[in-house]
């Protein structure tokens, strides 16, 4: 017997603040347009007509880090690009999330050499890793969905340790 039942027909719902905010965050998450290499082409495919990521509130790829809350690192990160990547990450407003798309961004992929970072987690903290070289657009969408689950479980107040 919740209060919802009494008030439901008056158009009022009660919930927790966490739920509302997290619902808002997951339904309009703006990724930053951050294509680096081959994976970026699959990211573009995911945006295009056949896969249509805008179904999940992500049709807006922002070119500016200041307007985005998700960074999809799509492709290999070279040692020359790494400081740029970190600066862009620092420019994004809180809260922010990172998806490492593809093997290269996750662990270096086939390029185990002097030029490529062995995983973008060396420069920015990563929330979701998407495997594949390149991951199919469906895999990317699955990665985004996984991130949504994570965001939905976000707690505003850290649970107190007993």
């Amino acid at each position: 017997m919740g209060v919802e039942q009494k008030l439901g027909n008056m158009g009022v719902v009660t919930t927790t603040l966490e739920n509302v905010v997290n619902w808002g965050r997951t339904n309009a998450m703006w990724p930053m347009l951050f294509g680096l290499a081959c994976c970026a082409i699959e990211m573009m495919s995911a945006q295009s007509s056949s896969y249509d990521m805008s179904r999940f509130g992500m049709e807006l790829m922002r070119a500016s880090p200041r307007q985005s809350d998700l960074m999809i690192v799509a492709g290999r990160v070279s040692r020359k690009m790494a400081p740029v990547l970190r600066r862009l990450y620092d420019q994004m407003p809180e809260p922010k999330w990172v998806i490492a798309m593809g093997d290269c961004a996750s662990c270096g992929g086939v390029f185990n050499n002097y030029a490529i970072l062995q995983g973008v987690d060396e420069v920015v903290p990563v929330d979701v890793y998407v495997a594949g070289c390149p991951p199919r657009p469906e895999a990317l969408i699955h990665g985004v969905m996984t991130l949504y689950e994570k965001v939905k479980a976000d707690k505003f107040v850290p649970t107190q340790e007993k």
Binding site: R79, G108, N112, N113, Y114, A115, Q118
Partner: peptide, 16 residues
């Protein structure tokens, strides 16, 4: 600011 010349044979591959 990097040093060394990667394609020289005495430059290591940088294998992890």
């Amino acid at each position: 600011d990097s040093d060394g010349h990667p394609l020289r044979k005495d430059y290591p591959l940088g294998y992890e």
